[in-house]
Amino acid sequence: MDAMDAVAVKPKVRVATTSLAGCFGCHMSFLDIDERLLELVELVEFDRSPLTDIKHCGPCDIGLIEGGVCNSENVHVLREFRKNCKVLIAIGACAINGGLPALRNSFDIGRCLQEVYLTGLNVENGQVPNDPELPLPLDQVHPIHEVVRIDYFIPGCPPSGDAIWKFLTDLLAGRTPRLGHPLLRFD
């Protein structure tokens, strides 16, 4: 009975998550913690996240960012997270290094847009989309730590559910998160 009360009294940790220039693989991996999700929601509640469909982030304890920064919207979302989250975590290779989307960095963005919308095969009367609703692409894809301060990094492509679980439970328990060798081994 006491234990139940203690949990009820203790405010839950608020967590927000988002995917920028990523493939949602890290989020899928997050769901791979399976039934431990039930344990997790005892401890945390979700703010903005694809899991809740909440569109804007309020004050949070932890923010998890998947994916790198490839367009102006990514920058705005990332800034919103930094402004609201006490601890911001880069999760997965794309957030940490730019990952797969950053393979476009060796190409000139102007020439890409031209080829796709104006000069490419089968393009007739093309036009580069210019609706103000659309985010503009940056000339390069960047890891998120080049745009805002990041407190922790969880490597992997994607990190395994176990790695994410270990990291979050360490963090929630007040231990400096530490992934041992098995969780960092990818081959």
Binding site: S72, D108, I109, G110, L113, Q114, V128, P129, N130, P132, E133, P135, L136, P137, L138, D139, Q140
Partner: peptide, 15 residues
């Protein structure tokens, strides 16, 4: 880093 995209789309709005 948005300059090229701005030029190609002809946009200069606040977004």
């Amino acid at each position: 880093s948005l300059a090229t995209s701005r030029q190609l789309t002809g946009r200069d709005d606040s977004g």
